[in-house]
Simulated scan of single mutants.
Amino acid sequence: MTNPVLSRRELNRATLQRQQLLRREAGPVAELIERLVGLQAQAPLAPYVALWSRLEGFDPADLSALMTSRRAVRATLLRATIHLVTAEDCLMMWPLTHTVADRGFRGAFGKQLAGADIGAVVAYGTELLSREPYSRNRLREVLGERWPHWDANAMAYAVSYLTGTVQVTPRGVWGKTGPAALQTIESWLGRPPVADPSIDALVLRYLAAFGPASVADAQTWSGLTRLREVVERLELRRYADEDGRELFDVPDGPLPDADTPAPVRFLPEFDNLLLSHADRRRVNPTGRAVPLPPGNGAAMGTVLIDGDYRADWRHHRGKSLQVVPHLPLTTRERDEVEAEAVNLLGLIGSADTPVEIGQSPK
């Protein structure tokens, strides 16, 4: 039997609805974080913009409270990058994704530690981080003193990649600052990671939040491999995209009409919406590179217009909020972008900050 074909725009609207980007809804912050299976959080404050774009009446204090009470954490998980997740998800996801971190470390730093006893380095580093938080610089100093003939920087990364860690608060707390200090998951949360978590359950949650999607999409999102055998044993709906790629979906996954209106939405740096598919054309039809600028976050990002990535934004504090379109905007689109920019300033700036919408390339 031929699988039903879904157009790019149908996939766009399905993903936007599941990402809560077609309409803001009220609800607990922790519940949405879990529904989205975490938020990209390399820029510590980026999740605040991500949640503001999705939650009705979002208050940054709600997320800050989750973090300071250790009910939510920033940890190296999916794709070996830092994600904001609930404590329960952190304990479940690390055992499933630690192989991704191991692969990332060996690809980036393995040669620098050829001949070194990496197991001993990681064991000692884990012991240190189980007692108190360490910055990577401090780890580098301590490990370099203990093993002066091995690359200190690579040893510090070995510990941060291969030991399950979180970046402790106050880093990532709204209105506060702090160093990128690491502590083990177990010591910070007071519980060990789950002994035997279900990869099947994780894939189902991915499809519920990002589907319909292909096996390659799921592997891109997670960094994991061999997920074909997982989807094949699950009871899933099957579709095809316009190029014939096989897509999978949870049985109750919503598929809104392709003509469903999609409001302008401002996203933070590296929002998972733009990163979680091997074929990103459903939200990024031109294939434009998604920028990851330096900084703490909540100062720049991307803009969805009619559901697609079509502009970038930057907040010049005390001066302006600037939007740079990639393609010409209609008068209506410019008005909608300006209105949503003003709304965003209620979170990150002040109401009297001017909004500047630049000219797109001809």
Rank of each mutant, 00 (worst) to 15 (best):
Val121Gly: 01
Arg282Thr: 02
Ser214His: 07
Leu128Tyr: 03
Leu329Glu: 13
Leu63Asp: 02
Thr163Trp: 00
Val100Met: 14
Ile305Thr: 10
Asp257Tyr: 13
Ser222Phe: 02
Ala43Thr: 00
Pro285Val: 12
Arg237Met: 14
Leu329Met: 13
Leu304Ala: 05
Val264Arg: 00
Asp62His: 08
Leu139Ser: 10
Arg106Gly: 12
Leu234Lys: 13
Asp308Val: 02
Pro294Thr: 03
Thr2Asn: 15
Leu204Val: 06
Arg54Cys: 08
Gly253Pro: 00
Trp52Arg: 04
Leu321Arg: 03
Glu340Asn: 06
Thr76Ser: 13
Glu232Gln: 09
Arg140Met: 07
Arg74Lys: 14
Leu304Met: 08
Cys90Pro: 07
Met300Pro: 01
Leu21Met: 00
Val203Ser: 02
Lys362His: 05
Pro193His: 08
Glu269Phe: 09
Leu128Trp: 07
Leu347Val: 08
Arg24Asn: 04
Arg146His: 11
Ala43Ile: 05
Val159Glu: 01
Val159Ser: 01
Leu129Ala: 06
Gln322Ser: 11
Gly190Leu: 07
Leu63Gly: 00
Arg138Gly: 05
Leu267Tyr: 00
Gly115Glu: 08
Ala278Val: 15
Phe210Ile: 02
Pro361Ala: 03
Val159Asp: 00
Ala108Cys: 14
His277Leu: 14
Ile348Leu: 07
Val231Phe: 03
Thr126Ser: 15
Leu275Met: 10
Arg310Met: 08
Asp257Ile: 02
Leu128Phe: 06
Thr15Tyr: 01
Arg74Gly: 00
Val290Met: 02
Met67Glu: 09
Gly358Ala: 12
Val215Gly: 00
Arg288His: 05
Ser160Cys: 11
Ala201Glu: 15
Gln112His: 12
Leu204Trp: 02
Tyr124Phe: 14
Val100Gln: 10
Ala43Cys: 15
Thr163His: 05
Ala41Asn: 14
Gly144Gln: 05
Arg310Gly: 09
Gly223Phe: 00
Met155Arg: 00
Leu224Ile: 14
Pro179Trp: 01
Arg54Lys: 07
Ala181Arg: 07
Val85Gln: 11
Asp59Gln: 14
Asp352Ser: 13
Arg317Cys: 13
Val230Met: 06
Pro179Glu: 07
Gln322Ile: 06
Ala208Gly: 10
Val355Pro: 01
Arg314Phe: 13
Arg332Glu: 15
Gln112Cys: 09
Asp196Thr: 15
Arg18Val: 04
Lys319Gln: 09
Arg136Ala: 12
Gly27Phe: 05
Ala339Ile: 10
Phe210Cys: 04
Leu162Phe: 13
Glu132Tyr: 10
Val49Glu: 01
Ser350His: 12
Ser198Trp: 09
Phe58Arg: 08
Asp241Thr: 06
Arg54Phe: 04
Thr330His: 15
Glu336Leu: 15
Leu344Thr: 04
Arg282Trp: 08
Val168Asn: 08
Glu56Thr: 04
Glu34Phe: 06
Ala158Ile: 01
Ala216Met: 02
Gly297Asn: 05
Ala123Asn: 11
Thr126Gly: 14
